Amino acid sequence: MTVIRDGVVLASAERGGRPSTPAHREQLADIDAAEDFLRAYHDAHPASGSLADRLAEVRAEIAGSGTYRHTAAELAYGARVALRDSGWCTSGVPWRRLKVRDLRGIRNAPAVAEECFEHLRSATHGGKIQPLVTVFAPDAPYRPGPRIWNEQVVRYAGYESADGTVLGDARYTGFTAAAQRLGWKPPTQRSKFDHLPLVVETASEGPQVFTLPRDVVHEVPLEHPELPWFVELGLRWHTVPLISNMRLLIGGISYPAAPFNTWFVGTEIGTRGLADENAYGVTRTVAARLGLDTRSERSLWRDRAIVEINRAVLFSFDSARVTVTDHHTEALHRLAWLRAGPRNGAHRPAFTLAKQAAHRARHGSPPCFEERAGRS
């Protein structure tokens, strides 16, 4: 019998139902991936010692326990490469010097939440956003690591009323309702920009909710360089995109909680967050204030309104001296990255997003540690 949770094999049992001996366990660590990664690491760090000795050491660890432990230097290198290749590595990020917070000893939910908040404090850096990666305990045979439900540590609640209207971010109505079922209490006076709680789940504790301390969230009120009425819309956005539900894979080891941040691309806020009808949907309101003809799509009123929303985002972040980049700069950066040549290797370090994790971040389900048994 094999027990699988959240797509990860956690234990294997023989026909009698008892765990098998270490030599016959399901190996969580892929030895081929481990060896490929270690060769790549030693190629990049030729002064790091004997590759042959390290390979022998790792093979012995996997044979005995089903997994192995990265050195601090290996972990940092793997996380940096994964972020560089993730699609979230914005231009200007010094990935080779990226700070990696090694917190692999942390497994319990309250400590994970507190360190996520500390990550936010450090990353905010007075508006000069500091890219960081925090790595919590990995999955290991019979001992899964913690999971974070939220798509980003800072996200805004969406409250759906009986008539279908939404106050706040419509993308997160399901997550908001799920957080309330878990015990989260929204502010008495609800607003369009209430911070969702952080939800951390472990196999032993289940899902727990943690309210974000006010001091960890830095926000920028939005205004427009030429339209005085724009500030009357009461729009704002948080400054650090701390991605929290992606799994970090390095050399056959899976780190299910490894939150990371760079800085925002303006359109991630203006187009995807504020303008999108499935999020805040302010495009029509802005178009009306601009006096645009919204009766026909051929007038391109949406495009014109979205441009002004994005101008407001960039202007406001620049005025607040908060790091942000624009989508044209990022497009050129991405093209240059692609032209630099293919990144070969099936076992390269990577941040990945499982379908269930993506669903959980929007709808608050399914739980991470729901057992599914199947015959081995």
Rank of each mutant, 00 (worst) to 15 (best):
E151K: 05
D163M: 04
A287C: 13
T188Y: 04
Q180M: 15
D43W: 00
R171G: 00
S161R: 15
D53K: 14
R147D: 00
D276M: 12
L38Y: 01
H24T: 10
V135C: 05
R15Y: 12
V220P: 00
M246L: 13
R80N: 07
Y156L: 07
G126Y: 07
T71Q: 03
V265F: 03
S86Y: 07
T262K: 04
V322Q: 05
R39A: 10
W301I: 06
S204A: 14
Q152C: 03
I148T: 06
P94I: 07
N150K: 05
P366A: 09
H125M: 05
V3E: 14
S91C: 10
R284M: 08
L353E: 08
Y68M: 06
P46E: 07
G291C: 08
T294S: 08
I309K: 03
I253E: 03
G270R: 12
A79Y: 08
D215H: 14
A157H: 01
S12R: 15
M1K: 14
K185Q: 15
L103K: 15
G164F: 09
H238Y: 15
R121M: 06
P225M: 10
S20A: 11
G78P: 01
V81E: 09
H70M: 08
G158L: 05
T329F: 02
A137W: 03
R155G: 00
I4T: 14
Q180F: 03
R25W: 12
K192D: 12
V100E: 04
A358W: 13
R298G: 01
S48D: 13
S204C: 00
E205M: 08
F136L: 05
R107D: 12
E370A: 14
R214W: 01
V58H: 04
L314A: 06
A279M: 05
R84P: 00
L233F: 06
G105S: 09
I306A: 00
S91T: 14
G183N: 12
G49H: 04
R343F: 02
Q152E: 07
P241D: 10
S319Y: 03
D194A: 12
A257H: 08
P259E: 11
T173M: 10
V9H: 11
D194M: 13
V133G: 00
R39E: 07
R298F: 11
R289M: 12
Y280S: 00
